[in-house]
Design a protein around this nucleic acid. Structure first.
Length: 170
RNA sequence: GCUGUAUGCUACUCUAUCGCUCCGUACUCGAUACGGGGAGGAAAGUCCGGACAAUACAGAGCGCCGCACCCAGAUAAUCUCUGGGUCAUUCCUGACGGAAUGCAAGACAGUGCCACAGAGAAUAACCGCCCCCGACUGGUCGGGGGUAAGGGUGAAAACGUGCGGUAAGAGCGCACGGUUCCGCUAUGGAAACAUACGGGGCGGGUAAACCUUGCGGAUUGUAAGCCCAUGUAAACCGGCGGCUGAGGCCGGCUCGGUCGACUUCCUCGCCUCGGCGGGGAGACGCCGGAGGGUUGGGUGCUACAGGUGUGGAGCGAUCUACAUCGCAGAUAAAUGAUAGAGACUCCCGCGAGGGAGGACAGGAUCCGGCUUACAGGUGUACAGCCUAU
RNA sequence: UGGCCCAUCGUCUAAUGGCAGGACUACAGAUUUUGGUUCUGUGUAUGUUGGUUCGAAUCCAGCUGGGCCAA
């Protein structure tokens, strides 16, 4: 386990040498966090595997019928506090309605951008949720008219998560 | 050389970091590590054709649906493709000729329809012309017939012109001509068809109206289908039925076929004492009602009409020999983000250099074709303009 | 993914292959002190590109846009 953390630090170091602008916020806290979901064991904190995504389940129906939402600039974040069949503090799903974007290419691209942004903003959310001992089901929806740039998506998603945290944890 | 049109090929490349997904290997079996694979020419539209699967292992007729120039070839197959030809229409050209397009059979089998206009739109007599009869009476009216030469229309008017002929007329006859008509004849051709002469017609159009002829087609689709799990339930209520055949199936109908369950108990009557008949219950089958469970997992699923290279056959579509490669398999659905470098195009600049841009578009069972979208690059053909010889 | 269907004024709908009609709406005028009601008039459409036909909203083909169904 020590080897793992060392390895992760080594990767971080390599990254920081290449792109010094990116690294500041999200690199360090993963190694030095408190325990409930064990962040020290989570060797790649910015990954987003199958377990961390919300897939075909009754939870999705529940999320739509009972969930609450935060939105801004055409981005909507639907959330519901409930028990999840996993030890991760949150599961997320991403959606782009066919009504707004006709071509499959555009929908795929936006979903990828949403997923990428969520992936970068995730560790902080995990740590705070774990500290409050809560689990969340999430759904990110984009309802624009044109395909947005990555920077815009990133900004909106991070602000949405901040809003969400301020509502959940008082 | 530039521009345009058509068409074939191609569909930016590399490095680093952080991620996604599938497969393999390893172990400390995990929230792991390492290695390898990871969208297209149209993946699109779903317009055709197949493979594969189920409906019974699938026959005949009818119905329904589709297709339609000819010959040869290619293919698993086609309304596809290739080669050659025929015909029609349009365009170009002074002409020879060339190009493009074409669901290109049949209107002498039958039925329907053809607005408006027009006498009439398919067994043409409304006006007109001619003959006969009658009336009043001296040119009119009425009746009967003949006649498609003339009549403002229309997309289309019953082959055209001339002569003869006649009461008036008429392909009624003759001459010349037309025919995107027909069958016969001759020649050429493998055929579609072309040409020629003679004969016969010439009563229109519409089959992308019904239809006829010929040819072809079973239907439904991977959410097909198979397996596992879950649930209760070989459960409950009602009706009907019977081996002298209930009922199911044969794809939409019929024929003709095919499969075919349970058969036990109680009671009453009759007699030839073992059967027959009636009633009830059970079992079986079918129909209906009420009620319940699952919205999971596996398989189908990607190795084949497979890709690449070289050679051979062929005008070509394509076929073939050898070598070599393993090349997506997700399921709220994987290919992304960031940074840098290099090509390419455009703009600014004398220059050094600086700035901007990357089309159409994302697998969902798989192939072959068609159609549609497409920045840039590149090959070929054709057309126009300019320059030089 | 597979299968099926539709498209007519701004909206809802008609139209055997033969002048695209009606209702509501909009605009203008009249009535009214003003508004409403009522009356009169006007405007506006066959999704698109070709073909068949003398003639196409209708028949045929290709595009475009929209809708429905499924274990």
């Amino acid at each position: 386990m020590e080897e793992k953390s060392l390895h992760a630090e080594g990767q971080g170091a390599a990254r920081s040498s290449l792109s010094p602008a990116k690294q500041g916020s999200s690199n360090k806290p993963a190694t030095a966090s408190p325990v409930p979901y064990d962040a020290t064991r989570h060797s790649a904190p910015r990954s987003l595997g199958k377990e961390e995504r919300l897939s075909r389940d009754i939870l999705l129906d529940k999320l739509f019928s009972e969930g609450k939402s935060v939105s801004q600039n055409g981005f909507t974040l639907v959330y519901l506090e409930c028990a999840l069949p996993t030890f991760y503090p949150a599961q997320a799903a991403f959606s782009v309605p066919k009504k707004h974007f006709k071509h499959a290419t555009d929908r795929n691209r936006i979903k990828r951008l949403l997923r990428e942004s969520y992936r970068h903003e995730k560790p902080e959310l995990y740590v705070k949720l774990a500290a409050a001992n809560k689990q969340l089901a999430l759904m990110l929806i984009c309802k624009g008219k044109e395909v947005p740039a990555h920077a815009i998506v990133q900004k909106n998603v991070s602000e949405l998560i901040v809003k969400l945290l301020s509502r959940i944890i008082k």
